[in-house]
C-alpha cells in the first residue's frame, strides 16, 4: 500500500442545510484526502441541484454512536415518564387556552 494510495483517504460524513432556517441533515458519505477536498466533493456529489446552502463534513472516525443493541436499556429512562407530555394532564374542557 503506497503512501499516495486511495486506501489512505478517510471517510467523511456529509451534512447539508437545505435552506436557511433548517438544521443540517445527514445526506451520505464520501472519501477525500482532506477536509477542503471533502467539502468540494460534497458540493459536487450532494448539491448538484441546489439542494443546500451550507455543508458540514465530519470525519466518520470522529463520530461516537450509541449501540442499536442498547435500544431498550439506553433509552429506558424516558420510557416511564409519560408526565413529560402535555397530554398526560387532565384539564376540564371549559378551561380556555391551555
Amino acid at each position: 500500500m503506497s503512501q499516495g494510495d486511495r486506501r489512505s483517504w478517510p471517510l467523511w460524513e456529509v451534512f447539508v442545510r437545505a435552506r436557511r432556517g433548517l438544521s443540517h441533515n445527514h445526506v451520505g458519505s464520501l472519501h477525500a484526502p482532506d477536509a477542503a477536498m471533502a467539502l468540494r466533493n460534497a458540493r459536487d456529489l450532494y448539491t448538484r441541484r441546489s439542494e443546500g446552502v451550507s455543508i458540514w463534513v465530519v470525519p466518520a472516525a470522529a463520530i461516537t454512536a450509541s449501540s442499536p443493541q442498547e435500544k431498550d436499556s439506553f433509552f429506558d429512562p424516558a420510557g416511564d415518564k409519560v408526565y413529560r407530555h402535555p397530554t398526560f394532564y387532565e384539564i376540564p374542557d371549559e378551561v380556555p387556552h391551555l
Partner: peptide, 25 residues
C-alpha cells in the same frame, strides 16, 4: 487517474494543519 489520487494525498499530508476547522454553524 492514479497520479491525481497520489497528488491529492501528498497535498493533504503537507497541509495537514490549516484546513477548515471549527467553523460549524
Amino acid at each position: 487517474g492514479a497520479w491525481v489520487r497520489e497528488a491529492a494525498s501528498a497535498y493533504a499530508a503537507k497541509h495537514q494543519v490549516g484546513v477548515l476547522t471549527g467553523s460549524a454553524a
